[in-house]
Structure formats: structure tokens, C-alpha cells
Design a protein around this nucleic acid. Structure first.
Lengths: 177, 177
DNA sequence: GTCGACCGCGGAGACCTCTCCACAAGATAC
DNA sequence: GTATCTTGTGGAGAGGTCTCCGCGGTCGAC
């Protein structure tokens, strides 16, 4: 049985976090706990790390992104779709810096199943589309691609597009070594 | 005039930091200050951030890397040289995690002139070699390449090589969009 | 030597992340 | 309604980063 006050607390934390992150992307966990009127212990029991909390908050953003895939694939060639999708993802990461950080480093395997999984699935679908019409090399790996995406996000804004172009060219050519 | 005790302190800090980082890559700044027998204030006045300190420590590593460039270029084709050099860099970053972190994110422009500059110069030289014999596209940007390198470092060890291969293929192909 | 002027010191302290556990407050059984 | 069991609480605290500033040690002038 889930205790009723527990569920309530969780909701309050989420609300507080949403508000806090909206006005300052770098809010401290402390502050969120305080805003939510709970102790740090409670905050951390619900979300064992800052990333976990952030990913929960940006869940909708992720769903939006994932849902866009079929549309893009219907409208453009696989490579174009991948380009547009990736630029969208990077823009999202950039808009909310915390989101980029959470989706990038080592968060992976462990916590992020709910967000990381779908994102990888989306990339997989895009890559598959390209593989089956031959416009993307067969050995392309979704996880690698996401990792490279992290570099785009970290780079200066005006470099994201050229860097992505380079990566896409790399994905297009047949393996050389 | 530089006060004598100041210079001495700086030396002690560096020695302590080298030792501390050697035995634990994640040592706290606190601990280093303590080891060096100075207050945190002094530590931070000399090295305004953790990255600054790390870059100072791994200066030799960087020099080694930079010096290897001409040798590699003499031995192999530009693309091969670039591949070997980059794998070496990534290995270094991985060996000393802190080093990778310091060379990657936003540290750039500001602090890292002494380390960042030479690394970019090395990459520039490698890319130029490839551009002049036509094996690397003319619009390749050293800074972009270093950024992508960060992704290699963050990725799982066994993915670095395939990812690099993909990037190199991208660098080889002529711009498509 | 002696004496200011001033540079650099280092610790106190503000604020952070994250853990641990004595205790309080729901849920359940009767 | 009461007793009991269980789940979750929240704050104290360990350890971190980084800043600020009163005070003491150094250096150049004499």
C-alpha cells in the first residue's frame, strides 16, 4: 500500500521542482525541497539524483520529441528527418541546460530507463529507416549517435549545424576502415 | 614583485595536487589545500577552479601529445595520423578522468589558454595535412573536432574506435548539404 | 636595522549534495 | 476505537566548493 501522504508529497515535490526549474535552471535540490515543504531526505528518496528529477520533469518534452519521429519520416527522407529531429533535440537541450546534462553523461543505464529508452528507440527508428533505403550505413549505432549529440549540445550554438552535417556525412558513407 | 612565500606556496600546492590526483582522481580541493598546508583561499587564488589546477598538472601530458604530431604525420597518412593521435588523446583523458573533464566543457576560452591552445594547434596541423592532400574536407574545424572527441571520451571504451571511424569518414567525404 | 605600505594568507562561513535513522503518521486487524 | 505493524518523514550532519576579509608577514625606502 502506498501511503497517502507519500503520494501527496511526491506531487508537491514535482510541482515545486517544475516551478523552480522554470525560473532558474540551476536551482539547488535544497531549494526545491524547501519549496515543496519537505526535508532533503524525502526529496532524495523520491528522486535519487538531480538527473532523475529533471528527467521526470521533462518527460513531456521527450514524448513530444519521440512522437515527432513518424511525422518527420513521412515528410522527408530518412537523413533529412534525422537531421531535423536532431536539431530539435539539441534545441531542447539547449533551452533547458539541465535537460541536456541529464540526458548526456553516465546517467544512462541506471536511472533514465523511462527517458533514455524512448529516446534511443526514436533514434533507432530513424536510423533503421535510413538503413533500409541504403542512405545510412548498416553499422550505425543509436547509442553512439546520442553520445555525439551531446557534443552538439555542448558546442557553440552556431556550430551545431555544421557538426551535425559532418556526422550525417559520416553516417552516409560506407565504412572505410 | 612576487612575494617569496607566495611562490613557495604555489609550488607546494602543485606538488600536493600532483600527489593527490595520482592516488585518487577525484580528490577534493579541500584535501589538496590541506596536504599543501595552505587554506582554501590560497588554493583558489592560485587556481581559480578545479579545471585550472588539473590543466596545470597535466601540462606535460599535453606537451607529449602535441609533440607526437610531427612524428605521426611522418609515419602515416594524415587520416591515419589523426586517428592514432585522437585515440591517444582519448586514452589519456580516460586514464585521468579529471583531465578529460577539464578539456571538455566550457572551461575553454577563459582559463585553458595554455592547454587548450596547443591542443587546438595540434588538431589544426593534423587537419591541414589532410586538407592539402585532399583526404580531409576543406571545411573541417579543429574546435568542432575537439568537441566531438569529448563524446568519444564519455562513451563506453569499446565504442570510441567505431565512433571515431564514423567521424573520420565524415571528415573524408565532401560536404553534402 | 627599522618602518610603513601593501600583498597574500588562511580560516570562518554561506550554501551545496547526499545519507542515515529515531520517530511520526497511515494502514490494517480485531 | 484501539493496538500494532509498516512505511515514510525530515532534520542533523559529513563532507564538498568557493568567497570574503581582518591580520600578519615581506619588501623597498631610508
Amino acid at each position: 500500500m502506498v501511503r497517502s501522504d507519500a503520494r501527496e508529497n511526491r506531487a508537491r515535490i514535482l510541482a515545486a521542482a517544475r516551478e523552480a526549474f522554470a525560473e532558474d535552471d540551476g536551482t539547488s535540490m535544497n531549494r526545491i525541497a524547501q519549496l515543496a515543504g519537505v526535508g532533503p531526505g524525502t526529496l532524495y528518496r523520491n528522486y535519487p539524483s538531480r538527473e532523475a528529477l529533471i528527467l521526470e520533469i521533462y518527460q513531456e518534452e521527450i514524448e513530444r520529441l519521440v512522437d515527432a519521429v513518424p511525422v518527420l519520416l513521412a515528410e522527408s527522407s530518412p537523413v533529412q528527418a534525422l537531421r531535423r529531429w536532431t536539431l530539435d533535440l539539441v534545441a531542447g537541450m539547449r533551452r533547458k541546460h539541465a535537460f541536456g546534462a541529464a540526458l548526456s553523461p553516465d546517467t544512462h543505464q541506471s536511472i533514465a530507463a523511462r527517458s533514455y529508452g524512448p529516446v534511443i528507440a526514436a533514434i533507432t527508428r530513424l536510423l533503421e529507416a535510413g538503413k533500409s533505403d541504403g542512405s545510412i550505413r548498416a553499422d550505425a549505432e543509436p547509442v553512439d549517435f546520442l553520445q555525439l549529440t551531446g557534443a552538439l549540445w555542448r558546442a557553440a550554438p552556431d556550430r551545431a549545424e555544421p557538426m551535425l552535417a559532418l556526422i550525417l556525412d559520416g553516417l552516409g558513407s560506407r565504412p572505410s576502415s
